[in-house]
């Protein structure tokens, strides 16, 4: 039976997996240990071969369930490195072997996020980006030129929106100052700047106050999210991104 991985943690002290915590398919969450020198703990559950064969609403529900297990670790005061939704191994031994092989990378991630949470803040433009251009209609001799012009206008508009959002994100970053340990940004096709701040748990109150008093430019509004596991700071690619995730136009917030 496959082993599903929710998150990786530094070795446990007295805190164990909360009793009754279940994961995908309702099976119990277990703590797997990769012994020294890896010294890592993984929260996993056993799933059926078909457990992840879902679509639509069930996919959304499973992704949120994955996040609830990550949140359960956070609630214990233990900051995990969340796995991506859908991460599975053939069995427990394969999971432990992978953790052991990559212990150095995982320990570096855990050291970076220790004692902190990820807090999302969205900078939402008052006017969201226009929908995609219409395709040229057959038989219209000027349609091709108009279409290319509209593409150019759209590209320029996207650049302008992104520049404005980056300016506001930098202003927000300055306003929260040293309350933030790290930051990742991504820009969505709709023009929303998604900012993830890595905030020490002890500074969460002051951070919220700082965000609440931040006044964005008048063409933006601020939407604050709830603290979550540090997804944005657990990807291996971050090691060569110098603190900023430039995101991708394929994100759609």
């Amino acid at each position: 039976m496959p082993t599903y991985l929710f998150c990786v943690l530094a070795p446990a002290g007295a805190e164990a997996v909360p009793a009754g915590l279940t994961g995908i398919g309702g099976t119990p969450i277990r703590a797997l240990t990769a012994p020294a020198p890896a010294s890592l703990e993984a929260w996993v559950s056993t799933i059926t071969e078909d457990a992840l064969r879902v679509s639509g609403r069930d996919l959304t529900a499973q992704a949120l369930l994955h996040n609830e297990v990550v949140n359960a670790a956070l609630a214990l005061g233990r900051t995990p490195a969340p796995a991506r939704y859908g991460s599975r191994f053939p069995d427990d031994a394969a999971c432990v072997a992978d953790l052991t092989q990559r212990a150095g990378e995982l320990r570096a991630i855990l050291d970076h996020v220790a004692g902190a949470v990820e807090i999302p803040t969205l900078l939402v433009p008052r006017e969201l980006a226009a929908p995609a251009n219409e395709r040229p209609k057959p038989g219209d001799p000027a349609a091709g030129r108009r279409y290319l012009e509209s593409l150019r206008t759209r590209a320029l508009d996207a650049d302008r929106r992104r520049s404005a959002a980056e300016r506001e994100a930098s202003r927000l970053r300055a306003s929260v100052g040293d309350l933030v340990r790290d930051e990742a940004r991504s820009f969505t096709a709709a023009g929303v700047m998604s900012i993830a701040h890595l905030v020490p748990m002890a500074a969460m109150g002051r951070y919220r106050d700082a965000v609440a008093t931040f006044v964005p430019a008048e063409d933006f509004r601020v939407v604050a999210g709830e603290p979550r596991g540090p997804y944005s700071f657990s990807s291996p690619l971050r090691s060569d991104r110098s603190g900023h995730d430039s995101g991708s136009p394929s994100h759609n917030g």
């Binding site: 991985l5 969340p82 859908g86 092989q101 997804y231 944005s232």
Partner: peptide, 16 residues
Amino acid sequence: DLLNHVLDKGVVISGD
């Protein structure tokens, strides 16, 4: 935004 992060971020494993 949360779903995008759960689906697209986090530790990448060597399994499936």
